[in-house]
Simulated scan of single mutants.
Amino acid sequence: MTASPAQGTGPLSPGSHTYQLAGIVQRYHVHGAGPVCVVHSGGPGIAWDYLRMPALETHLTMVYVEPVGTAEDSRLPSHPHGYTRERYSGFLDVLISRLGVPEVYLLGHSHGAFVAAHHALHRPERLAGVVLYEGAPVTGPEHAAEAGRMVEAWAARHAGHPGLPGVLAAFGAMSRISDDEETVAVARGVLPSYFADYWADEERLAPFRDAIRATYISGLDEDLTPDVIDDRVALKGLTLPTLVVVGLHDVICGPRWGRELHELIPGSRLLTLENSGHFGHLEEPELFADTVRDFVRSTGAGEPDRRG
């Protein structure tokens, strides 16, 4: 493992950090102050910066991970395959060890919530708690059927809107994605359905949509085996403090899955954001930030040592 040249700053100093692990570049970005919260973004393959949370950075040291594979120099030899939860968790374990604090909080969004759940189940030693933000206990046909039902309901609410056909066409193209350009086009195409009411706030949200960057990641292991998830049994034994966050209008990992995660995980807390879809940190930032902050305060991690 090699690190970038020393600059007289520690691993939690504000700004961007880079190191290499087995020839793979790992980057992360530090913003804010307070107890350390490591943040794993979704997709897989969506660039990390959509998940910036300025409202939380006033309370916590936010460590935003660039998941391997999202930058050209961070790709596995098997790219676009091989990005399993176990592999992401292994990279997370090294990163958390490098931060030099006894414990961190781990927040995962969307696919990152699946990664965070796996890490909490299999490598909980350095975690003070976990935030599962827009996750689910399963993938596969059951998850897809629920998403299809939610998308149909969303489409019915927006029947007649001129933007609706484009969104539905993007969903239709999702299963045929095979490169980075198509990944970006589909991610931007479906995005209006990922908000409680995108078109009512399009002036504010359109720049967010236009800024989405993404890399094609297949969801298959190196041997082309799907990384199918069913955590229902395992989550019943999760003992870490856990906060589940879900948007009431999320079409992909919606309220059914938030309730199920909450019911499965002993002692977990559930926040349902009633005016949000998949991006509650943008749609209801103050409530989102206040709830995560209170969760951290009540479960007791201290301030990091920033000496480099």
Rank of each mutant, 00 (worst) to 15 (best):
A47K: 14
A47S: 13
A47N: 12
A47L: 13
R52C: 10
E57R: 06
E57G: 07
T58H: 11
H59P: 00
L60C: 03
V63S: 12
E66V: 06
V68D: 00
V68C: 05
V68E: 01
V68L: 10
D73T: 14
L76M: 06
H79Y: 11
Y88L: 15
S89I: 02
G90H: 08
S97M: 02
R98G: 15
L99M: 10
L99Y: 02
G100Y: 11
Y105T: 04
G108V: 10
S110L: 04
H111W: 14
G112V: 00
A113P: 08
F114W: 15
H118C: 00
H119W: 00
L121R: 01
R123S: 13
P124R: 01
E125Y: 06
E125D: 05
A128V: 03
G129V: 05
G129A: 03
V130S: 08
V130F: 00
E134R: 07
G135A: 05
V138F: 08
H143Q: 15
E146L: 10
E146D: 13
A147H: 05
A147D: 01
E152D: 13
A159V: 01
G166E: 02
G166H: 00
V167K: 04
L168Y: 09
L168G: 09
A169L: 09
F171T: 09
F171K: 09
M174L: 10
S178D: 10
E182V: 01
T183A: 13
V186Q: 09
G189R: 06
G189E: 15
V190M: 09
S193R: 08
S193H: 03
F195S: 10
